[in-house]
Simulated scan of single mutants.
Amino acid sequence: MNSQYVFMFVGFILASYSIVANDAIQTLGTFLSSNQERPWWVLWLFASSILLVVFIYSWSTNCGDVAYGRLEKFPFPENFTWVYIVPPLVLLFLTNSGIPVSTTFLILTVFAPENITDMLIKSLSGYGVAFVTAIFVYKFATKSLENKFINTPYKEAPIQWVTLQWMSTAFLWSQWLIQDLANIFVYLPRNVDASMLFFSIFVILILQAFIFYINGGEIQHIVTSKTNTQDIRSATIVDFIYGLILLLFKEWSNIPMSTTWVFIGLLAGREIAITHNFQNREMKETGKILFSDALKAFAGLVVSVIIAFGLPILDQMISK
């Protein structure tokens, strides 16, 4: 097999695992944490069914494009080299370290560094909208609900909340896939045939099964460290808000954005509002947790920029 194809498939497999482990767990994290009593394979089958619908719909309606048009400004490389498999390797290391890095910046910028400004503007906007929305919602709209949730924990949630939470997860998971499939399929031709589609689905489903089996891995701690996210009722509200914000930015433009930054912004605004409302912890302690999350995201951005601009230079130096 041509070495270019080796790099292409290795990059795709590495990206599939590292992106699902890092970004998807931020999306499915509340679902996992609030359904710990259920078998992992039941949760995996549910998430997999949504994934299949999203995959096949885009592929059939967009002439083989699985990324919903988000790779229009990211041309397929004429020459696949080792440079392109470094970002998912770095992402894998950061994920295992529990760092919620933006896969959008880390993966996509190496393919088209000139797009980083547009992605940064959209991602910062996403963080800001999520942060402000969360403060407003949790400070005013859901204050009484959250108070009830915190003071009346359920050993087993009522069926209506289970139904709502699974609906919110399906909605959020589909919106995340539409946004972030570009980060995975950037390694494959922009229009894949049926055999390539089945191959990619098989790879992602198997890797996703492993991540569900280990209950989310290190990134899951970002979710469980936040107030009451194990409560299925609180998790439902988080997921609906997150999904609606992603839907808003999906309609804004086809430029890829960091869903990680939206996620961190949402949790940050939520924690500030809940701390202010219920004094469940010192505001200073909350600030430390949120600063730590933001610092990790910023560190990931710095690493992404270094990789995007440094690797091509290093490749040229080695090739001489």
Rank of each mutant, 00 (worst) to 15 (best):
Leu247Ser: 13
Asn96Leu: 15
Met119Cys: 09
Gln316Cys: 09
Val132Asp: 06
Thr142His: 07
Val129Phe: 12
Glu72Asn: 14
Leu177Phe: 05
Phe185Tyr: 15
Lys284Ala: 05
Gln279Leu: 03
Phe31Met: 06
Phe171Gln: 01
Ser125Gly: 15
Leu267Ile: 03
Phe278Glu: 00
Leu311Lys: 01
Leu290Ala: 01
Lys226Trp: 00
Asn115Trp: 10
Leu120Lys: 07
Thr30Phe: 13
Leu244Pro: 00
Tyr213Trp: 12
Ile274Ala: 07
Phe9Ser: 07
Ile107Gln: 05
Ile222Trp: 04
Asp23Met: 00
Glu156Arg: 13
Phe212Ser: 07
Tyr5Ile: 15
Thr95Gln: 10
Ala182Leu: 02
Phe80Arg: 02
Val162Lys: 14
Tyr138Cys: 06
Ser97Ala: 14
Thr117Ser: 14
Leu14Gly: 01
Ile25Gly: 02
Tyr213Pro: 00
Ala170Arg: 00
Thr259Gly: 12
Val42Ala: 05
Trp44Ser: 13
Leu145Lys: 15
Gly128Val: 12
Ile241Gln: 07
Thr104Tyr: 09
Gln160Pro: 03
Phe74Gly: 08
Gln179Tyr: 09
Ser18Asn: 10
Ile307Gln: 06
Ser16Pro: 04
Phe12Gly: 00
Phe111Lys: 06
Phe185Met: 07
Trp173His: 14
Leu172Val: 01
Gly64Met: 08
Phe9Val: 15
Tyr187Trp: 11
Gln316Met: 12
Ile135Pro: 10
Ile56Lys: 09
Phe93Met: 12
Ala235Cys: 01
Leu71Phe: 05
Gln160Tyr: 13
Gln316Leu: 11
Phe291Cys: 05
Glu156Pro: 03
Gly126Ile: 08
Val10Met: 14
Ala15His: 02
Pro189Phe: 11
Asn151Val: 08
Trp41Met: 11
Phe278Tyr: 02
Leu43Lys: 08
Asp180Asn: 15
Tyr5Arg: 13
Ile219Arg: 01
Met283Asp: 01
Ser200Glu: 05
Val10Gln: 06
Gly64Ile: 12
Asp65Lys: 02
Thr104Gln: 09
Lys288Pro: 02
Ile255Glu: 13
Ile99Ser: 10
Ile56Val: 13
Met257Lys: 05
Trp40Asn: 10
Met119Ala: 03
Glu78Trp: 06
Pro87Met: 03
Phe291Trp: 06
Ser49Ala: 08
Ser18His: 01
Gln36Pro: 05
Tyr57Cys: 11
Thr142Met: 15
Ala130Asp: 03
Val203Glu: 09
Trp59Asp: 01
Thr163Pro: 05
Ala273Met: 03
Phe55Ser: 08
Trp41Tyr: 14
Ser49His: 05
Pro256Ala: 00
Phe199Lys: 07
Leu94Arg: 02
Met8Ser: 13
Glu218Phe: 10
Val303Ile: 15
Val305Gly: 07
Val83Trp: 08
Arg233Ser: 04
Tyr68Ala: 15
Gly64Tyr: 04
Ile13His: 04
His276Thr: 06
Glu282Gly: 08
Val110Arg: 06
